[in-house]
Simulated scan of single mutants.
Amino acid sequence: MAVPKKRTSISKKQIRKNIWKKKGYWAALKAFSLGKSLSTRNSKSFFYPTNN
């Protein structure tokens, strides 16, 4: 027979939510950093064609 699960505490729910939010924050920070390095041509891992 199915038994209902216990309720997750509010603090545990907040901890999980903050971890999830922080992952998005770091992904956005990395994307912004990469975009900044590409726009200023300081990136070491991308090839920039020279227009002669």
Rank of each mutant, 00 (worst) to 15 (best):
I15S: 03
A28P: 02
P4Y: 01
K23S: 14
L34M: 14
N42S: 11
L29I: 03
W20N: 10
W20A: 11
K22F: 11
F47N: 11
K21L: 15
I19V: 09
T50W: 08
P49C: 06
S11V: 12
K17S: 11
K17F: 04
P49N: 13
S37H: 01
G24R: 07
Y25M: 11
A27N: 12
K13R: 14
T50S: 06
W26M: 11
S43W: 00
K22I: 10
N18L: 14
V3C: 08
A2G: 13
R16D: 15
G24I: 02
A2V: 10
K12T: 11
K13P: 01
K13S: 04
S9H: 00
S43P: 00
R41T: 12
L38V: 05
K21S: 15
S45G: 13
W20Q: 06
S9Q: 01
S37R: 03
K30S: 11
S33I: 02
T50L: 09
V3K: 04
A31G: 03
S45T: 07
A28C: 09
A31K: 13
G35P: 01
L38I: 03
A31T: 04
N52P: 11
Y48T: 14
N42V: 02
F46V: 13
K12Q: 11
M1W: 10
S45L: 07
F46Q: 12
W26L: 07
F47W: 14
S43F: 01
K6C: 06
G35N: 15
K36S: 12
S37C: 09
A31H: 02
N18G: 02
I19E: 10
S43M: 06
R41S: 09
A2L: 05
K5H: 03
T8A: 09
K21G: 01
K13A: 04
Y48V: 06
I19L: 12
A31D: 08
K21A: 15
G24L: 11
S45Q: 03
S9L: 00
G24Q: 04
I15F: 10
K30N: 15
M1H: 14
Y48G: 01
R41W: 13
N52E: 12
V3A: 08
S43Y: 01
I15G: 02
A2M: 07
K5G: 08
Q14M: 09
V3Y: 07
T40P: 00
N51M: 13
W20D: 14
P49M: 06
K30D: 15
M1T: 11
R41E: 11
A31L: 07
I19A: 13
F46I: 12
S11P: 02
A28Q: 15
F32Y: 11
A27M: 05
A28M: 12
N51I: 15
Q14T: 08
I19K: 15
T40I: 10
G24A: 05
K5V: 03
W26P: 00
G35K: 15
A2N: 06
Y48P: 01
K36A: 13
S33N: 03
I15L: 07
K17E: 07
Q14A: 12
